[in-house]
Design a protein around this nucleic acid. Structure first.
Length: 277
DNA sequence: ACAGTAACCTGTTTGC
DNA sequence: TGCAAACAGGTTACTG
């Protein structure tokens, strides 16, 4: 479910409820996530939240003595349950089946739900960016480090499909299966084209397509295909702006040809054979 | 180093 | 209608 825009939407939703607040408790009901939730997350209790940030699809809650790292995996979401956790509120907010952990602060409970359990909840010692999960990540696609020239240089000599190339977090982070198809369509590049056989000019077009589609999706609160909701429970509205993703057999908006669907690197990909080369 | 595949897990949709 | 297979927004680990 969550790609960069959905993670950004979630982060923005929980941020004002956490910054400058003290973490009163962490309740882990089911520690069986991607990796077992370590007891060390308890180090956050009693600490004040300094800031929140997103790196790739990870959310980081920064504290003076380390940081809490959360990933939503394929099916994760977070909710803000307003109200202090007295007995009455506890009953009103009885945890559901896949509500695996809560972060309690004054004024609200932040609740993590993840049916498929591909998400994670970890404690990172400072400096968090040196943690193995974060250290090898490529640039943020909305930052100045990311450019067409950069993509071109990184792609030289590489034979894998360009779609797989831009979905590799060591190349650039945050481009998931939906937005990879969308950006390649917008840039007119066939998803199966070998990464190393694309000109710098076309990579510049791809760079701007990636920036554009991600920025617009953030503005719409992300894409809700089936079950993504932001921290107030509302869906994202970018699905109505999708140009190719999920549109197999429908008409291309540019040329009218039927949109194709093909599995590339184990993921469904959508493209127009007329408009993408 | 690179490229391709299997794996983690549950819920929903699709197809016979 | 029922059941099994296929599929789903991510990422790591393993293979050759």
């Amino acid at each position: 479910m969550p790609e960069l825009p959905e993670v950004e939407t979630t982060l923005r939703g929980i941020e004002p409820w956490l910054v400058n607040r003290t973490i009163r408790a962490i309740e882990v009901r089911d520690s069986r996530l991607r990796w077992p939730v370590p007891d060390a997350v308890g180090k956050a209790v009693g600490q004040q939240v300094l800031s929140l940030q997103r790196r790739a699809k990870y959310m980081l809650i920064n504290l003076a003595n380390g940081c809490l790292l959360i990933h939503l995996g394929m099916s994760g979401s977070m909710r803000v349950l307003a109200g202090d956790t007295d007995q009455h509120e506890q009953e009103k907010h009885a945890p559901g089946k896949h509500d695996h952990f809560d972060i309690l602060v004054d004024g609200c409970t932040i609740r993590f739900n993840d049916p498929r359990r591909f998400g994670c909840f970890l404690w990172l010692e400072n400096p968090a960016m040196e943690h193995p999960l974060l250290a090898a990540l490529g640039p943020e696609p909305l930052s100045d480090e990311f450019s067409g020239k950069y993509l071109y240089q990184r792609s030289q000599g590489r034979k894998l499909a360009v779609k797989n190339f831009i979905m590799d977090g060591k190349v650039v982070v945050g481009v998931g299966n939906i937005y990879a198809s969308e950006a390649l369509y917008m840039a007119g590049i066939h998803p199966l084209r070998a990464a190393g056989k694309i000109s710098i000019a076309r990579y510049e077009g791809l760079e701007s397509a990636i920036r554009d589609v991600l920025a617009r999706a953030i503005r719409q609160g992300g894409t809700t295909l089936r079950d993504f909701t932001s921290s107030d429970g509302s869906p994202g509205y970018f699905a109505q702006e999708l140009l190719v993703y999920g549109r197999a057999g429908q008409d291309c908006f540019q040329c009218g040809a039927k949109i194709r669907q093909k599995v590339i690197g184990q993921r469904s990909s959508y493209y127009c054979i007329n408009c993408q080369h």
